[in-house]
C-alpha cells in the first residue's frame, strides 16, 4: 500500500467521521444533502458486496465495514432521527440524473459482464458524481458552515490522494485500473471550484460563501 493511498483512506475516514460528528453534536442535518448521503450509502453497499466472498486483509475488511456502517448511520440521522432539521427544500438535485447514467455506463464499461463486476463499476461511477447534490445545495443556499466545508475538503482530498497513489502504482507496479482512474479524475475535478473557495476563504477564517 502506498503512502498516498493510506493518506487518502485516512482522509476518507476523517470526512465521514466529521460529518457524523457535526450532525450528532449540533443535532441538526441543516446544510447537508440527504441525497448525496443516500447515494454514498448505495456506493458502499454495491462496491463491497465482496466483503464476505473474497478476503483481502484485515485492514480492507475493517474499512469496508466502517464505511458501510458509518454511511448507514449518517442516512439514519438525516432521514429519521434529525429529520425535522433536514433542509429538504434546498436538496433539489434529481438523483436519477446521475444514478441512471452511472448504471448504463457500468453495463457498457466493466471488467466482466457479471453481477459483481457491473455492481462494482456502477459503484465507482456513482461515487464520482454522488457529491453533486451537496455541491448544488451549497451553491443554492450560497454558503456552507465551516465544518461542512472541512468535510467536503477531506472528502475531495481522498480521491485526489488516490490519483497520486495510482500514478505511483503505475510506475512501480505496472498496475493500472482505467475505470477507477477515469472516475477518480472526474470526481476530483468536480471539487475544483470548491477547493478554490476553501483555500481562499475558509482557510483565511471566513465562512464559505458562493459569490452571486
Amino acid at each position: 500500500m502506498t503512502l498516498f493511498r493510506l493518506a487518502g483512506d485516512l482522509s476518507h475516514v476523517l470526512a465521514i467521521l466529521l460529518l457524523l460528528y457535526k450532525i450528532w453534536t449540533t443535532k441538526s442535518a441543516a446544510g447537508i444533502s440527504g441525497k448525496t448521503q443516500l447515494m454514498f450509502c448505495m456506493v458502499y453497499v454495491t462496491r463491497y458486496l465482496d466483503l464476505f466472498t473474497s478476503f483481502i486483509s484485515v485492514y480492507n475488511s475493517t474499512m469496508k465495514v466502517l464505511f458501510i456502517s458509518a454511511s448507514v448511520a449518517t442516512v439514519y440521522l438525516i432521514y429519521f432521527k434529525f429529520k425535522a432539521t433536514y433542509d429538504g427544500n434546498h436538496d433539489t438535485f434529481r438523483m436519477e440524473f446521475v444514478i441512471v447514467p452511472a448504471l448504463i455506463l457500468a453495463l457498457i464499461w466493466n471488467y466482466a459482464f457479471t453481477f459483481f463486476e457491473i455492481s462494482w463499476a456502477f459503484s465507482i461511477f456513482l461515487e464520482a458524481v454522488a457529491i453533486l447534490p451537496q455541491l448544488f445545495m451549497v451553491t443554492k443556499t450560497g454558503e456552507a458552515e465551516n465544518i461542512t466545508s472541512h468535510y467536503l475538503f477531506a472528502l475531495g482530498s481522498y480521491r485526489a490522494l488516490y490519483i497520486l497513489n495510482w500514478i505511483d502504482r503505475y510506475y512501480f507496479e505496472g498496475h493500472w485500473d482505467p475505470i477507477a482512474v477515469t472516475a477518480g479524475i472526474v470526481q476530483t475535478v468536480l471539487y475544483g471550484d470548491f477547493f478554490y473557495l476553501y483555500f481562499t476563504r475558509v482557510i483565511k477564517g471566513r465562512k464559505l460563501q458562493v459569490l452571486p
Binding site: M63, W120, N165
Partner: peptide, 10 residues
C-alpha cells in the same frame, strides 16, 4: 500487464 480492477483498494 492487463487492466485490472483495484479490488485491494477501497
Amino acid at each position: 500487464q492487463p487492466a485490472a480492477a483495484s479490488k485491494d483498494e477501497l
